[in-house]
Amino acid sequence: MENNIASCLTGTEPLDGGPSARPSPLPLRAGSDRRPHAARAGALARLKADLALRVAATPCGGADVDARQNHPPAKTGALFPPDQAAGASISRRDGHPAWLAPGALHDLFAGVADGPAAHGFATGHAIRIAAGRPVVWAFHDMAGRELGRPHGEGLADLGLDPDALLLVRARTVPELLGAAEEAARYNAVGVVIISAWGAAKAFDLTASRRLALVAARSGVAILAVRIAADPAPGAAWSRWTVRAAASRLLEGDAPGHPAFSVTLLRHRGGAAPATWILEWDRAQRTFREGASG
């Protein structure tokens, strides 16, 4: 178990102000390290302390630790420092998608009416993470019927180059998951977006685990947008609900830039659940905080 933790966490750079820089407040469990290298042992000790802190910080408690270790993000796995997770400023570390890491699966849940908002949120992240690489959008036919099909000009208006987008239509959820898994195997792909409609039985823990493993292996981010489904446990690195939010009005009371109200429900990196109001800034290709009250 310890080796597992070590291998998955040593790759992460210590974040400024993060707990890994602090002295460990918890004692190291004796006999847990079978590796002779002192340096490694030290790192391990730090990481364990770090882990313990996070376990204490998350409301789910320690029962979940084992599950949490199974799906590390690939290499740039973002561990959320607690003070940041508190919601002070999430766009402070500019240029780093602090909440949706590549090489991992992220679940975005949305109600029926908030489908476009969830897709907008996913598209924003896809633009950030893919950085010019192709984006594959696997689209459930049901979602296409209910929300309308993705519109090229609208995508271009959000900042995603439609030429870099491959749309895959799937009639059923198993087809959808198969196509997404296939696409996520290619590390030439930047991001795979999945749009699933309804509480599908096929989108269970096993399917979620499969996707998470594929993403971890290839380094491709999978954003699973699940519309008209209730948030359910899964193997995703982070789990969110997305709702539309009132935008900052422009002059003449014109609706402004896309705004979202996003709630973090669960983060394997240990970030505490919180809600943010975010606004998509196309010019900077980033989300700005606090669109409206």
Binding site: P150, H151, G152, E153, G154, D157, L250, H257, P258
Partner: peptide, 19 residues
């Protein structure tokens, strides 16, 4: 090509279009 939008303008076209 795809049309360009002034950077300060909000999206003028929807993300989803009904057939």
């Amino acid at each position: 090509g795809w049309r360009d939008l002034a950077p300060e303008d909000p999206p003028a076209r929807p993300l989803h279009l009904f057939r």
